[in-house]
């Protein structure tokens, strides 16, 4: 199997010693998308949520305070950069590190909010994310033990064994828990009820893009062909 089977044309490789970053159209597109969103988040203001107050004629405004704004924007930018890194990295261990960083920062982005429901949800998501680090790193370790390398450029050329497939399944469970998709999305949906749309978008962006990349990584490792 070839790396170009999945990601399209190979635009170039960046050899950094043992780790070889490979850039395909697919990686480049997702990398650029993550960076564009990060730049926009860095310069965007937050929205104001205006709702009618019950029982009176006044409006109730939900705004993001200045201190909260600064902290959340900083964490969002880190999250955006980590996402971009996870899109382009050619090293399995770096990939898992970026994914865990995304998980940590995602909790940080909403933990500055003073709303009980949102914090509850962030707490539950945090537990899932913490639990998911075990299969995530375990999977990467199994693949390292089975192949002797972490560079995906190398792994692609090694015929897959049962241990590698098992490792990639563990990796997938880890990524799913860490990014809070499919079976775990219910823990995450509540987090989005708070104000501050530019910061919330990166939470969603990171999880979806990481899942798409994880599909590529897992197919490269387990190689059905």
């Amino acid at each position: 199997m070839d790396i170009t089977t999945l990601g399209g044309q190979l635009l170039g490789i960046i050899p950094l010693g043992d780790i070889v970053l490979y850039v395909t159209t697919f990686n480049l597109f997702m990398f650029a998308a993550a960076l564009v969103f990060t730049v926009l988040i860095a310069m965007s203001k937050t929205e104001k949520q205006v709702e009618a107050e019950f029982g009176t004629l006044n409006d109730r405004e939900k705004k993001v305070g200045k201190d909260e704004f600064k902290v959340r924007r900083f964490l969002s930018i880190i999250c955006g950069l980590a996402t971009a890194g996870a899109m382009i990295t050619g090293d399995l261990f770096n990939f898992t590190l970026f994914v865990t960083l995304i998980g940590i920062v995602n909790i940080g982005i909403v933990s500055a909010v003073k709303e009980v429901d949102v914090l509850d949800s962030a707490f539950q998501y945090g537990i899932i994310a913490m639990l998911a680090t075990l299969p995530l790193f375990g999977g990467a370790a199994l693949i390292l033990a089975a192949t002797g390398t972490l560079s995906m450029f190398e792994i692609v050329n090694i015929p897959s064994t049962a241990m590698m497939i098992f490792g990639s399944i563990l990796l997938f469970i880890g990524v799913a828990g860490e990014s809070g998709v499919a079976p775990f999305f219910a823990t995450k949906a509540e987090m989005f009820r708070t104000a501050g749309s530019p910061f919330l978008v990166i939470i969603h962006l990171s999880s979806l893009l990481v899942i798409v990349r994880a599909i590529e990584v897992i197919l490269l490792i387990s190689k059905p062909f």
């Binding site: 159209t25 697919f26 997702m30 998308a33 893009l209 599909i215």
Partner: peptide, 12 residues
């Protein structure tokens, strides 16, 4: 091109 890219677009 690659189908995977189209699915990245659906995700975005």
């Amino acid at each position: 091109g690659p189908l995977l890219l189209l699915f990245a677009i659906f995700a975005i």
